[in-house]
Design a protein around this nucleic acid. Structure first.
Lengths: 242, 242
DNA sequence: GGAGCCCGATGGCCCAGTTCAACGACACTT
DNA sequence: AAGTGTCGTTGAACTGGGCCATCGGGCTCC
């Protein structure tokens, strides 16, 4: 046996798959900084995780920033009695783990097998001084996250179950398109329970609402892991409260 | 993240009222940057607004960053049919208006007469190159906001009316203490309607829940604009799902 | 291959919170 | 001081979505 059997595998070829995602990922190189990717790749590590694996938990010391090379991740917070709020679904090119000394504000868990790039926070901060553009990009990403969080608050606080589910499908579709997935079906790597905890609903209501959309011809449900938006415009209308 | 979070500052006599708030405000100078306050004050403008005045609206071009010198401000988003989600209540020392080129993600409105400091975004960005610590502090504040937003998602998606109102009172109390207000009563400068739209409830439910807390001896309601937390620990317990 | 298990779908009932309505307390105006 | 508008409280009835129970399909593991 001339081979290692390391679970956190080293990836041959490119030093960081994530950088292929370019402008979507915060480690993507910019036009004017030819030396930046190599500096970054020198300090980043890769983590290979199976599905339903925990990346870190709420309150853990925030040691790394993560970026998703492949796979899907969810973020969530818990109440003491087990009630859960999923605050984000993340896919290839997305990043997470931005936190202060108080520790991570949420738990991060894979939904599928996933390859993550991670950067030690301390080392990244040292690099900020040399590559200011890096910090600028991180601030931009934080602002994007903030806008998404505000949008989700509007959904959770003021939308009906029907509007919530429509918003969810439209959001997944838009983000899949942004990642270059233009197929007819949107991937649903998360469970119905995850969807319910993301939308502030119960599993039953999510299930019923999806069934109703299917009966109304708005969507197709070829299998549990996919949805086809047959009437995307109508869904967008429903999502916005029409 | 001490590097992001280093907002501790001693405030000498400064031309900007906002800087009196020291560590709370992002324009407060740091120990090592003696020339920073003057650079900042050179580019900041002050805005004096009456109560219930609009600072900017969702979608407006994001020209300035704002910091509250005195008064109280609310942020909110609207659905097309008028449903509203208040996403934040802000007080002296808080800042808002962080946005990218897509424009502001929310509307900002005063709840009381307010004195705001504002910084032109473009000029501030130019200053980032000279004073990197500024950008670091802004990133730290954005991360704080993000954690608060996640906490609010948990509240909106998974807490009961009783837990929501308790959380709201406890949050106001904690933040008032942070601003140095240690009196017996918490100020409620917002209307019942604002509270309802912040908690994802109706005015009636907020009113009934406050009355119930008062009957149970948990709070006092000396007048419409104040609440006294008589059993703060019990309220904290309720807020966390106990 | 079948026993057990997990997950999602569906039906029926129920309740927390909404909706509708009335009313009282102020503040401002004439 | 009477008229009017705004805001908060309270009561009564309603309902959207939660809760509980059942069922069925696909999976893993003997």
């Amino acid at each position: 046996m001339a081979q290692f059997n390391d679970t956190s595998a080293e990836i041959p070829g490119t030093p960081c798959l994530i950088c292929e995602h370019g402008s979507l990922a915060f480690c993507g190189p910019g036009p004017g900084d030819a030396d930046e990717p190599s500096r970054l790749s020198a300090m980043l590590g890769q983590v290979n995780l199976i599905a339903h694996d925990s990346v870190f938990r709420e309150g853990d010391p925030a040691t790394h920033l993560y970026s998703i090379s492949s796979g899907a991740v969810k973020l969530y917070k818990l109440l003491s009695d087990g009630r859960r709020q999923v605050t984000a679904f993340l896919f290839a090119g997305d990043f997470f783990g931005l936190a202060l000394d108080g520790g991570y504000a949420y738990t991060a868990e894979t939904m599928t097998p996933a390859l993550l790039c991670r950067f030690p926070r301390r080392k990244l901060e040292a690099l900020f001084a040399e590559v200011p553009r890096l910090e600028r990009r991180l601030l931009g990403l934080a602002i994007d996250d903030l806008a998404a969080a505000h949008e989700q608050m509007l959904l959770l606080g003021r939308k009906t179950a029907r509007e919530k589910v429509a918003s969810f499908l439209v959001m997944l579709d838009r983000r899949a398109a942004r990642r270059g997935h233009h197929g007819p079906a949107v991937a649903l790597p998360m469970s119905r329970s995850d969807i319910a905890d993301y939308l502030g609903l119960t599993i039953e209501t999510v299930s019923r609402t999806l069934t109703q959309f299917r009966r109304d011809g708005l969507i197709g449900l070829p299998d549990l892991g996919h949805a086809v938006l047959r009437e995307a415009d109508r869904l967008r209308q429903i999502a916005d409260g029409g």
